[in-house]
Amino acid sequence: MTLLIVLISAVICTFLWYTKGNACRISTLCWMFWGASLMWLVDAFAEYAELHEEYFTPSAEDMLNDTFLGCSVVVFALVIWIIDLLLHDPKGIFRKKKSALKEVSEHV
């Protein structure tokens, strides 16, 4: 379930990157989600080799726990992305504010 949620997020982010461009550094999210998807895919194969058919019939409790984990992973990735976005400031919002403040202080 975690793999599914992260994989869906990766596809959505890649679609957004392709259609809207990388103005908001959406590629950061793409790299994170695709990297994690590949790594969890290996985990999934290892688990399948161990459990066989049982892997596809998890208990309701396991599924709920994995869904909760998957959503938390997506939120964690979004937090990393927003920090990265604010630090790099691709639209120059903070720089514009800084220069405006500088101009005001020079006039005063």
Partner: peptide
């Protein structure tokens, strides 16, 4: 590209391990 995939994926996996 490779380091982005590796660092990004590892960050999310590290979160899972903390979880």
């Amino acid at each position: 590209w490779l380091t982005n995939l590796l660092w990004g994926g590892s960050a999310l996996l590290a979160f899972e391990h903390v979880w």
